[in-house]
Design a binder for these strands. Structure first.
Length: 796
DNA sequence: GTAGGGTTAG
């Protein structure tokens, strides 16, 4: 709304000046009414006002109140103009004051009602039976019980306390302000109750979620009516009591669109989306007229059910019923189409929508992200007129969901510059990006940010923090977070169990699992992925077998492909190749790539070249594009000196365009994540790193290190093989770590593949020679190197 | 001037 205070009065003045000469003064009610009716533009209205001033008719109480009544409905004028009209009346009556107060509520400014009411009392006007309900309503909107209580006192003083209308408004005010006690007290002591009183007190209990109290009132009320029944349906809906809700719905004499909407939404809250849609079509067969609210619920069910066709039908209904300009409905449609992958339809809606709100923009960005169009999402994000915390979170989270973790952190840093503060949801994405990047410093910074701003560490945030610290190798801090959480939830336990295992603390992990069982939290599928993973890391074959059995027998959890994969890996690593193979054959589902890979890896580790070759060949047939299988098979060939086969395999890879994913190690230094590829020379500090590698090599040799060249699958000279080894990405990262950080800071490295045997050996020796802790997180787990030993006890 | 339904964005 535009404020036109200044110019309005200027115009009014000039009109008044002119009016004396040019226009007939208005001096009767009938002329006034007809002149006001004809007003199309603000200036015409001002002319009428001017004409009344010249005639002095403006002082007439009734005439002025008519003028005032029209002025508040005219959005071109600020209410201060209407105020002015009121002040020109000598003794305005209650109706006039009421009109202005109601106008303030209508224009979203209820805060001006009480001051106006005080002015009214200060003048000689006396409130009528309409005045207090308006002021009470204003307090209710503002949730100001203090104000409401004051007006309540006035109600008593003026003797309106047996006016049922006033009383109902008071009951509603107390309920809205959360004071159910006084609402009930008022209701109980009231001498005059009508149906609205019953509906109001019922609504109060429904709002507060007092199921038993609401049922009691509903049963007691003199007459069941549609509004009360609708409230009850919605209450039962909220508590997932579908049957109770349906009973009420079924027994209703007269159902309206609200009843149907409440029932549909009740099904949705219990995730019974098909039933919701059935209700919707029943409603249509019964000829109930549809409004925009019920459409939203129906659309939501279609979205959840992926019922594209139904959604399109509803879209048609929306257009036919003329609801398409309703922005919330537009947004729901955008959401539905993009959730179903129809980004074109979503975009058309967005482009042709006449009115877009914040949610429209946010939904469209989320829609692009859901359809994998990250670049488009970012373009829209950059173009949007204003960004709120959801916009930022959507985009930041979108990067994280699409594995673009560097971008996640960059955008988060950009967000810091602006005025919008991140909330729990934003931080979850950011922390998870830190976990993926092993960016411990950044992760710690975010944790400190959370503490500093006293952001509530909820289940999600806590779990993500635990996961991040575990994945960065900071077991202690992870456990601190866990211990500090009030509400843990299964995911926090899972994060701890798999985190400990991943960090080589297998016994601790299994102990935590036992704690969890004892504390009465029921494990789920993911828990057992962690538990079996723990057994696998330590080669605990028997324990693994036991847990695999108990997950089914004690907890009734059917093992999924991941659990089977774990077991195959567990057997394979332990050298029980026969059992691993048999286990695979017993799987009720097709083994996934990881399971086959585990078997192949086991063959390689235990020198089962023949089975390995068979499995490898089979795998390459199954997954001709998978680089890892080619590499493993090549390594199996290489280990027996079959260089011809190695070369052949490399030829096939070339032909098929299979690229070996290069080893890549990351290390964070001063909050910046540095990336090294195997053989990489692109780092700006390459010269220094080279020197360090040279020194490292020399130190390693004097410490008795023998390069392990068995995994170098090239038919090249031994010396060259050694050089290749020295330029493995993790060695480059270690070298960089040694020059860019200082003791006792551990060197933390994350590698995309599994660490190779040679680098493992070298890291052990470096940790002793340089007195530096080295923590390597590879694709599978952690290796904490300290004083020449590794936490994995060389079993990995 | 009082009482009932909803959801769409992370």
């Amino acid at each position: 709304m535009k404020l036109v205070t200044g110019p309005v009065f200027q115009t009014l003045k000039s009109f008044t000046r002119d009016a004396t000469q040019l226009m007939k003064p208005i001096s009767t009610i009938s002329i006034l009414e007809s002149s006001l009716q004809k007003c199309q533009r603000p200036n015409q209205f001002l002319q009428v006002h001017a004409q009344m001033i010249t005639s002095g008719f403006v002082k007439d109480n009734f005439a002025a109140s008519r003028l005032l009544f029209f002025s508040v409905g005219c959005l071109f004028f600020d209410l201060s103009y209407s105020h002015q009209i009121l002040f020109q009346i000598d003794v305005p009556n209650a109706f006039t004051w009421n009109t202005l107060m109601r106008a303030y509520i209508w224009r979203d400014s209820p805060q001006f009602c009480i001051p106006l009411y005080s002015l009214m009392l200060g003048s000689d006007s006396v409130p009528d039976n309409f005045t207090h309900p308006i002021v009470i309503h204003a307090s209710a909107i503002r949730s100001s019980e203090v104000e409401g209580k004051q007006i309540h006192a006035h109600v008593k003083k003026f003797g309106f306390d047996s006016d049922v209308y006033v009383l109902n408004t008071l009951i509603n005010m107390y309920s809205v302000c959360g004071n159910l006690y006084d609402a009930q007290l008022l209701f109980d002591s009231s001498p005059v109750l009508d149906l609205v009183s019953w509906n109001t007190i019922l609504a109060a209990h429904v709002k507060a979620g007092n199921v038993n109290e609401a049922i009691r009132i509903y049963d007691q009320m003199p007459e069941h009516n549609t509004i009360a029944a609708n409230s009850m349906i919605s209450l039962f809906g909220r508590f997932n009591c579908v049957n109770d809700a349906y009973k009420i719905f079924d027994e209703m004499k007269a159902r309206d669109v609200v009843s149907w909407t409440a029932m549909i939404s009740c099904y949705e809250q219990s995730e019974m989306f098909t039933e919701a849609l059935v209700m919707f079509s029943r409603m249509r067969t019964e000829g109930v007229s549809l409004d925009e609210v019920v459409m939203i619920s129906a659309l939501s069910a279609c979205t959840k059910l992926c019922a594209t066709r139904n959604g399109e039908v509803i879209h048609g209904l929306i257009i036919r019923n003329g609801h398409e300009s309703y922005v919330n409905l537009q947004n729901a449609l955008i959401h539905m189409y993009s959730s179903h992958g129809n980004i074109v339809a979503a975009q058309q809606l967005f482009d042709f929508c006449s009115f877009l709100d914040q949610i429209s923009w946010n939904s469209m960005i989320a829609g692009y992200l859901k359809c994998g169009l990250v670049v488009e999402a970012r373009a829209l994000f950059d173009a949007m007129p204003s960004k709120d915390v959801v916009s930022w979170t959507t985009m930041i989270g979108g990067y994280a969901q699409h594995d673009q973790f560097m971008e996640t952190l960059e955008l988060f840093n950009e967000m810091q510059v602006g005025p919008i503060r991140p909330d729990e949801t934003t931080l979850v994405s950011v922390i998870s990006a830190c976990a993926h990047l092993s960016a411990l410093e950044q992760g710690k910074w975010v944790h400190a940010y959370i503490k500093k701003n006293s952001i509530d560490i909820n289940i999600f945030l806590g779990t993500t923090l635990i996961d991040m610290y575990m994945k960065c190798g900071s077991v202690e801090t992870a456990l601190e977070v866990f211990n500090g959480m009030k509400d843990r939830g299964i995911s926090a336990w899972n994060a701890v169990i798999s985190g400990l295992a991943m960090n080589g603390l297998v016994m601790e992990s299994l102990e935590r699992f036992a704690d969890m069982e004892n504390s009465g939290v029921l494990p789920n599928e993911i828990t057992f992925v962690g538990v079996l993973g723990a057994c696998r890391h330590a080669g605990l074959v028997d324990e693994g077998r036991q847990h695999f059995k108990s997950m089914q027998q004690t907890y009734g959890i059917q093992p999924n492909v991941k659990h089977y994969g774990c077991m195959v890996d567990l057997f394979g690593r332990a050298g029980l190749l026969k059992e691993a193979e048999e286990f695979m054959e017993s799987m009720p589902m097709t083994p996934d790539v990881a399971t086959w890979g585990a078997l192949l890896g086991a063959c390689k580790k235990h020198g089962a070249t023949e089975i390995g070759e068979q499995v490898g060949k089979k795998l390459i047939e199954l997954e001709p594009q998978h680089d890892g299988f080619h590499v493993l098979l090549a390594n199996i060939y290489a280990s027996t000196g079959r260089w011809d086969d190695v070369m052949k395999l490399r030829g096939t890879m070339r032909k098929r365009g299979v690229m070996k994913i290069p080893g890549c190690s990351m290390i964070e230094s001063n909050g910046v994540v540095h990336e090294f590829l195997a053989g990489d020379r692109t780092h700006p500090q390459m010269e220094k790193i080279d020197k360090m590698i040279e020194e490292m090599t020399w130190r390693l040799k004097t410490e008795g290190y023998q390069p392990d060249i068995t995994d170098v699958a090239y038919d090249i000279e031994e010396e060259e093989k050694e050089t290749t080894l020295y330029r493995h990405s993790e060695k480059l990262a270690i070298a960089f770590g040694l020059i860019s950080t200082f003791p006792p800071t551990p060197i933390r490295i994350m590698k995309n593949l599994r660490i190779c045997g040679d680098c493992h050996e070298a890291a052990k020796i470096i940790s002793r020679a340089y007195q530096r802790e080295i923590i390597v997180r590879d694709r599978q787990r952690f290796h904490h190197f300290r004083l020449g030993l590794c936490s994995c006890t060389d079993f990995w």
